[in-house]
Computed example of a mutant assay.
Amino acid sequence: MNIAQNPNSELSHFAVNTPQVFEIPETFRETARQFQEAMMQYSCAIREFKTKLEVLNDELSMRNARNPIEMIKARVKKPKSIVEKLQRRGLPLSIESMESNLDDIAGVRVICSFVDDIYEISRMLERQDDVTIIAIKDYIKAPKENGYRSYHMIVEVPVFFSSSKKNIRVEVQIRTIAMDFWASLDHQLKYKKQLDAQEAAEIGAELKKCADVIAETDCKMLSIRQKIEEKHPTQEE
């Protein structure tokens, strides 16, 4: 059985990658309607959160004469991945278990131009009184061993339906363009089954070096931008 999802609206300066069709695994067939409703709700939570980001981006572009957000990507986790994650954790295979235990079913990735944009966006989100911060992991200040860098937030946002309001969790990843490019290569490495252990280790070591170079480049680019702004500050009309 397939579940069709309404596509999210998008602005011309945003790219949104959200799957449009969900295949229900056998585990959820008895509760297909409830599962369809849950996926719809997560999709709506993404739409609500994207709107917040678009508003912030428009405001900051007016203030700073540039767009701090280059791109927004969004996705709802695939049913197969949901089932596999619940099984790995030894959790019940139910919609209630899915909603209570998984924080990354709805995911939004925010691609910024500079490192300071990441922290400015995150601070603005934290100040919004209808956004509840559940957890924060700063992999920029404390990168993973493989070199991965990104700023992660788990948030809850209210979504208003016809007769109710529901707080829904969204995983947010905020990173620079360079960090996102690196992460895509690292993701490919993890899922290339044909690589043997030695090949994977060698490529992993090369990627770690690249991650360090990218981090240094991000810092240098930020420094250059700040020098330009010091000499030529933005003039508000």
Rank of each mutant, 00 (worst) to 15 (best):
I69M: 09
E54K: 07
E26Y: 12
E23D: 07
A32R: 03
R33T: 06
E54I: 07
K52A: 04
A65L: 09
R66K: 05
A32C: 07
R63S: 12
E54A: 14
I46K: 07
E37I: 01
C44K: 12
T18L: 14
N67I: 05
T27M: 08
Q41H: 11
R63P: 07
F28H: 06
K73F: 15
K73W: 08
Y42E: 07
K73Y: 11
V55K: 06
L60M: 13
R33C: 07
Q34Y: 03
R47V: 05
R66H: 01
E23F: 10
S43H: 03
T27C: 06
L60H: 12
E70N: 15
K73E: 13
E59A: 07
Q36N: 07
E70M: 08
Q36T: 11
Q20G: 11
R63H: 13
T18E: 15
A38K: 03
S43Y: 01
K52C: 00
I46Q: 10
I46E: 07
D58I: 02
R29V: 07
F49G: 00
R33I: 12
V21E: 14
F22I: 02
Q34W: 02
A38L: 09
A38D: 05
V21P: 04
D58V: 01
V21S: 14
R33L: 11
E23V: 06
T31N: 13
E54V: 09
V16S: 02
F28W: 06
E26H: 10
Q41V: 03
I69Q: 04
Y42P: 02
P19N: 07
E26L: 14
I46T: 13
Q20E: 14
E37T: 02
F28V: 08
R33E: 12
E26W: 06
P25S: 03
Q34P: 04
E26G: 01
M62F: 12
V55L: 03
A65F: 11
A38V: 04
E59S: 13
R33V: 06
Y42A: 04
N67H: 11
E59K: 14
A32E: 08
A45T: 01
A45Y: 00
K73G: 15
R47P: 00
P25V: 10
P68Y: 12
M62T: 08
I72S: 08
I72V: 15
E37G: 01
N67V: 08
M39N: 09
Q34K: 05
I72R: 09
F22K: 00
I24L: 15
N64F: 15
S43D: 03
S61G: 03
C44D: 15
M71C: 10
M39L: 14
T18W: 10
K73L: 15
F49Q: 02
S43F: 01
E23R: 09
D58Y: 03
E30A: 14
C44H: 11
I69E: 03
Y42I: 00
Q34H: 01
T18M: 12
K50Y: 04
Q34M: 02
K73S: 15
E48L: 00
Q20R: 13
E26S: 12
I69A: 05
S61H: 08
M39E: 02
D58A: 08
T51S: 10
I72Q: 13
M62R: 15
E23Y: 06
N17V: 10
Y42Q: 01
A38F: 07
F49R: 00
I24R: 05
A32W: 08
